[in-house]
Nucleic acid binder design. Structure first.
Length: 291
DNA sequence: TTCCAGGGGTAGA
DNA sequence: TCTACCCATGGA
């Protein structure tokens, strides 16, 4: 390590809080060292060798150690990605203020300040989300590890470290995807998504534009292969839009047990009812709602 | 063996 | 809009 990048954090920011508030840190190429409080991530930057990033908080400063140190343009890009992943630019003060009226929710949300870890690219988050559908979390972890291990670009000095594969790498290796990554029927969706991105038919990064109306973003997400209502709502959350609940088996079980007295087959409207009053913060209100 | 897990796509009504 | 059925994979 020859280089340390310093970056200021927002007030009351907690790296461990943000990391642990969501399961994404368990998915390659993320790795969380709980003892050291260091978030590891291998990243492929344009115009640079694959770098390994160690991200650590010291007081109100974020320390980012890239190995090997990339050239200036790639360094700026690395920091830009870290900012995005940790949502350093996202203003969640309104949500936190509303939490003030709900002590249980406040206690749960306080550690992360409402921030949930995400991936640098919408492509990566889309693939991860598709890999959470109709499977167990355990399988999602395994699928992601295989995808990165088989198709991700390797670090020069430490080839066991790999970055998340680019769409081009997935599109160019359909056999490896099917035979070695083993995504089950999700394979076809991920392959199609990779091909559409690699071929320039779609631009997922454009969905980060905050001026786009949420219904339009949702509409474009629903057009993606393997993305239905649950995945679209999850991706909207990952894009910083919290209006819509991702109704899945987990949410269903939680709302049934906590608010519906175990009702047998609640409708989506009944499932959403407990969080209606949260308006544009519904997703976070559910997410931090104690079980 | 059967079921199903943080669903999606399709056909048919 | 709603329902029924199928979809690979791996664990219970």
């Amino acid at each position: 390590m020859h280089q340390i990048l310093h970056h200021p954090t927002p007030p009351d920011f907690s790296l461990s809080g943000v990391v642990l508030a969501h399961g994404w840190y368990q998915l390659a190429p993320y790795r969380w060292d709980a003892d050291a409080g260091v978030l590891h991530r291998t990243e492929a930057l344009p115009g640079a060798d694959v770098v390994h990033l160690e991200i650590e908080q010291r007081g109100d400063t974020l320390w980012v150690r890239p190995d090997p140190p990339p050239p200036p343009a790639a360094t700026a890009e690395a920091l830009r990605r870290v900012r995005w992943c940790l949502r350093l630019d996202e203003d969640l003060s309104e949500f936190m203020a509303l939490c003030g009226e709900d002590p249980d929710l406040m206690a749960a949300a306080l550690a992360s300040g409402g921030r949930l870890l995400r991936s640098p690219t919408v492509w990566e988050d889309a693939v991860r989300t598709i890999m959470t559908t109709n499977t167990t979390w355990r399988q999602t972890v395994a699928m992601t590890r295989r995808l990165v291990g088989v198709l991700g670009p390797a670090h020069g000095k430490h080839p066991e470290l790999r970055a998340f594969p680019a769409p081009e790498a997935v599109a160019a290796n359909p056999e490896a995807l099917e035979m070695r990554v083993r995504l089950g029927y999700r394979n076809a969706s991920v392959l199609r998504l990779a091909r559409e991105l690699a071929g320039g038919a779609i631009d997922l990064e454009a969905l980060k534009d905050p001026t786009l109306p949420t219904p339009e973003v949702r509409g474009r997400l629903l057009e993606l292969p393997g993305v239905g209502p649950y995945a679209a709502a999850t991706l909207l959350m990952l894009l910083g839009r919290y209006d819509e609940l991702a109704i899945d088996s987990e949410l269903r079980a939680h709302v049934r047990a906590k608010y519906l007295d175990g009702a047998s087959s609640p409708t989506p409207r009944e499932l959403a009812a407990p969080y209606e009053r949260w308006g544009g913060w519904r997703y976070l209100a559910y997410w931090f709602d104690p079980r």
